[in-house]
Design a protein around this nucleic acid. Sequence first.
DNA 1: GGATGTGAACAATTTCACAGCC
DNA 2: GGCTGTGAAATTGTTCACATCC
Lengths: 215, 215
Amino acid sequence: MPTVSSEELAAAAGVNSAKLRKDFSYLGSYGTRGVGYDVEYLVYQISRELGLTQDWPVVIVGIGNLGAALANYGGFASRGFRVAALIDADPAMAGKPVAGIPVQHTDDLERIIQDNGVSIGVIATPAGAAQQVCDRLVAAGVTSILNFAPTVLNVPDGVDVRKVDLSIELQILAFHEQRKAGEEAAAADTAVAPAARRQPADKGPDGDVPAVMPA
Amino acid sequence: MPTVSSEELAAAAGVNSAKLRKDFSYLGSYGTRGVGYDVEYLVYQISRELGLTQDWPVVIVGIGNLGAALANYGGFASRGFRVAALIDADPAMAGKPVAGIPVQHTDDLERIIQDNGVSIGVIATPAGAAQQVCDRLVAAGVTSILNFAPTVLNVPDGVDVRKVDLSIELQILAFHEQRKAGEEAAAADTAVAPAARRQPADKGPDGDVPAVMPA
DNA sequence: GGATGTGAACAATTTCACAGCC
DNA sequence: GGCTGTGAAATTGTTCACATCC
């Protein structure tokens, strides 16, 4: 398939074709009228715009289960990321290889960042250590941080932080799950007492309201 | 602090206070004019609306590094999630405790789901196994799935899937990182040749364009 | 003929600003 | 006086529909 139309791409992605064309148009005019988009060329242009044609060295700080999982994660290399170093505060970890990369001690953090020209850091430490690690990363020159610790990090302007909170993802699912259950119940209700629905949902049935409720 | 104003909450969250008030108003009128919101009561109402007052049993399928990290993750319990079971396809894992929970074999997946009344499943398997695991979870009654495998899952209507792609998070950071670098370069450029900027950025300098570029 | 690229219409979201209440 | 709750205005995002070009 050398060429693809906005219609086909939109169907595959589950979006409107006009939106897709408009979005692409912000990157430039890479399509051909009457024909579509050259697949290879489009892939290259999008890759370049997204920064996938560059090599990004990253460091992972905190080599527990999650840090190790990240170090072993296969998807990074193909997207242009290279794990330049693994760093942990536990001296017993130092030198031990994880995913084929020897773990280094936190003491050397600044040197490691500078030697490898790292601008992206991943924090997979416990919550208590995260801010401190963050401060050191930033001071050493890191300007983008991916934070897995359940803490809000304070950073100076110009530094980007993205937070992945694993339990928030579950919460979002649980929220929808609850709504599904609620709708089923409501649908069942409707047969009996259609007009009685809204109030309990908005204010909570009295039986549900705990002692914290104010007068 | 028994009470809090929308202004204070908005500042803490980094959003506009009107937006925050409007959002809260969709849950009901839980504030007091001239005073603010009763903290405890607000926490309870939001918790209830988000489903945090319920207990959600979850199963984790695929107990590699990531699965183990999730099983050990402390944040779940406090948000109402309980790891009901760990499941892995490797017979050698069966019975081994991870985070204090014995790993069970995939053969028993359906029974485990049903016995525990599980409606939320977490997939932390390799990409190749994910769809198959997903199908079995759904057939057994799971209606929400958190997917860490780098695959798009096909599910029937009524089943929610959330995907956490670790390298996409890094890509987003890399994208902004690239823009920062680009802006610095552009700012430096401006002093020399302000009018010459746009074309290279849109079409790419010739030196950058690889063999895939069509005639 | 067939598909892009885009101004114009439409829809959704966010912010303003203030009436209403404590 | 101070702060919520909410219509109305402003902004942002999406879709339509068609002129334009291969």
